[in-house]
């Protein structure tokens, strides 16, 4: 089976300012189906730019990008939109749910765009199914403002899943969450990955990257490290550790 993501010598140069900025300088990368990749790097390392390129939100200046065997590097705006709709799922740092729109309707949104036509009933059923996967089907009629950060991020994951994407792209998905909720969300990602979904996420937290299978490190637009994670963290054990740590803190607190 060919890799789901195949990037060859990709470059991105921004020349809107006074000095052209060479954000990505010849990155070559293959991601196999079922992989779980963390993309790391300091700010300015080009990881966001690479993520935008992977997400078909932007076109490379040079180089080739094959997504699921399709060369997407030179597609036009509408064709890219269709690719994003059908082949990719997005999870953002700030959740980016539509306010004053229920969880269910947020999840339905990708099905309203795109070429595939569903009946209203199909749309509802698929959205409910995805909410069920992330464990929020009971809260389908809640508005984002009525949900916690972790719950909002799980709604966003459900939305990313609804069109059965080839790759799930997550940009700092735990950036706005506390340690426990981060571990919960990573648990959801690990569960999805176990079911065979390919995930690529940007993070700058090393312990979050340890939940993944493979870590890529980018510096000044160049890939400097590509390694498998040896001591992988698992959400269940991490959450257990957190619970016992909290319990210990309470015990100590009770003694004084």
């Amino acid at each position: 089976m060919p890799p789901v993501v195949k990037i060859e010598e990709i470059h991105k140069i921004y020349d809107s300012g006074e000095v052209p900025v060479h954000a990505v300088r010849g990155v070559t990368l293959e991601i196999e189906r079922g992989d779980f990749v963390a993309l790391m790097g300091a700010s300015g390392s080009g990881k966001s730019t690479l993520m935008n390129l992977l997400g078909c939100l932007d076109r490379p200046t040079r180089g080739r990008y094959l997504l699921d065997g399709i060369d997407v590097s030179q597609l036009d705006r509408n064709a890219l939109a269709d690719i994003r709709n059908q082949k990719l799922g997005f999870v953002f740092q700030g959740f980016n749910l539509l306010a004053r729109t229920t969880a269910l309707e947020n999840v339905e949104l990708p099905m309203l765009y795109g070429a595939r036509k569903f009946t209203t009933k199909q749309i509802r059923e698929r959205a409910m199914h995805c909410l069920d996967i992330v464990g929020l089907s009971q809260r389908f009629d809640h508005f984002p403002s009525q949900l916690s950060g972790g719950q909002q991020q799980r709604v966003a994951i459900a939305r990313a899943l609804v069109n059965e994407p080839q790759v799930l792209l997550a940009d700092e998905p735990t950036g706005n969450l506390d340690t426990r909720t981060s571990a919960e969300v990573m648990g959801v990602f690990q569960k999805l990955n176990d079911e065979g979904i390919t995930i690529v996420m940007v993070t700058h937290e090393l312990d979050i990257a340890h939940f993944c299978k493979r870590n890529l490190i980018l510096r000044d637009g160049v890939m400097v490290r590509d390694e498998a994670v040896s001591n992988r963290s698992f959400a269940a054990t991490e959450l257990e550790k957190l619970s016992s740590a909290e319990a210990a803190a309470k015990l100590t607190g009770a003694k004084t």
Binding site: R77, R84, N96, L109, Y113
Partner: peptide
């Protein structure tokens, strides 16, 4: 932002 979300998940300009 809402427009950005819609475009990101596959809405066309039209």
């Amino acid at each position: 932002r809402e427009i950005g979300i819609r475009l990101a998940i596959g809405a066309h300009g039209s």
